[in-house]
Amino acid sequence: MDLPAPIGEHLRSLFVRSQFPAYFFVSHDGILVEWGGDCDRYGMTPFESGALACDQIDFLEGMLPLDGRWFHLPRLLIHEFRVVDVHFIPGDGGDWVVLLDTTEAANQEAVAQQQANDLSLLKLDHLKMLAQLRANNENLLAVFNQLRLTTALISETGNVVFLSRSGLNLLHTDADAMQGRTWREVFPFSKTDAEQFEQLLANPRASHERLRVDLKATSGRERWFDVDVRADPRDVTQRIVYFYDVSDLLDLRNKLNENARFQEMVGKSHLMQQVFQLIRDVARVDATVLIEGETGTGKELVARAIHFSSPRKPSLPM
């Protein structure tokens, strides 16, 4: 570009004042021949003329001689906090090396680059945390689904938005089939149980007692549950419903009650259990049995129990 001499001179002066150039000339055999400009600014002097350039200027190691093409190295931190762009320019019998001060621009870049890198690292951390949360969620769900505890999440509108695997198994359904269905459609409650359940949903804190319901699973087996309803701490309009399966407990209790009865007699104590066993033993024996005891102790009940437990039980009325 041809510029009038005063403009060219002004621009040159402006450039020199803002960039503080320093330069060296290095012969093709690596000898520092000439230098000039603002070398002091970069803490590089004194130089020894006629000595190897790379012994005096570390960053020249391996860089010269050039292959006839110029290139530049941006942003070399050269002296304390001084940053330069280094231009390598081929010349006659050697190469020129020119340093331009770019400290200010480098400092601005450093701020922007630091923010960009910090953001990138933050994003990576978030992605890692998200992956970890997903993994934890899957692990928890896997453990949770292994529990026999049936749990449901019911929305404000009464829709079942989640049902644990044990619940899905109990009702022989799957999560997709739950979509958009209300608890009335999902849980086969009796009319009375449904009414009580609705009250619990409306006011879960009103009762600390659990509601006992029976659910007839699609397998046909009737199962008993104690139902506990809690407000979802994340969204108080939602309800978390816990179904504690007490079927086995009730079965066990019934068995215990059966053991506590013998014919027309009732008794859980060890002594009464011994009496029941004695009756069973003597009922098997083909002999006359004498029953003694105070009036009102139940001799007649024992006699009737022996009679009805005996394999020789006659059809005669007592």
Partner: peptide
């Protein structure tokens, strides 16, 4: 503390 590097720094 993490300080990003701009350009290059030469150490010996």
């Amino acid at each position: 503390k993490y300080h990003t590097t701009i350009g290059v720094k030469v150490d010996k």
